[in-house]
Amino acid sequence: MKTSILVEKLGANVVCGKEHLETKEIEYAFASDLMSDVLTINAKNILLITGMANIQTIRTAEMADIHTIVLVRNKKATPEMIELAMQNDMIIAESSNSMFKTSGILYNMGLKPVY
């Protein structure tokens, strides 16, 4: 599914990577604040839903080949996060919704769980 359709449905504010919205495809989603768990998942084209907004969120996504991150609970991306995300051609979208609501919307749209 195109990332542009997903973020539009979420009403999320894209703060970085707008130029990739039409090209990046998403098949799976994973919701976690624990980066240790994110590093154990094994799937392609994953969207990460997280309330953890720091530079290691982006590093973790970089290592795990995750190109789209939705920050929930009104967490904001820092300038350092945006800079690193841009270097890695990532999309960051900010949402004021909870992790549960965000997950529910994306699940209803057909994104698959990693397990």
Binding site: L34, M35, S36, D37, V38, T40, M52, N54, Q56, T60
Partner: peptide
């Protein structure tokens, strides 16, 4: 608080 320290690293 950084999202680590869950005791998963070495096994991963």
């Amino acid at each position: 608080e950084m999202g680590f320290g869950a005791g998963m690293g070495l096994s991963n």
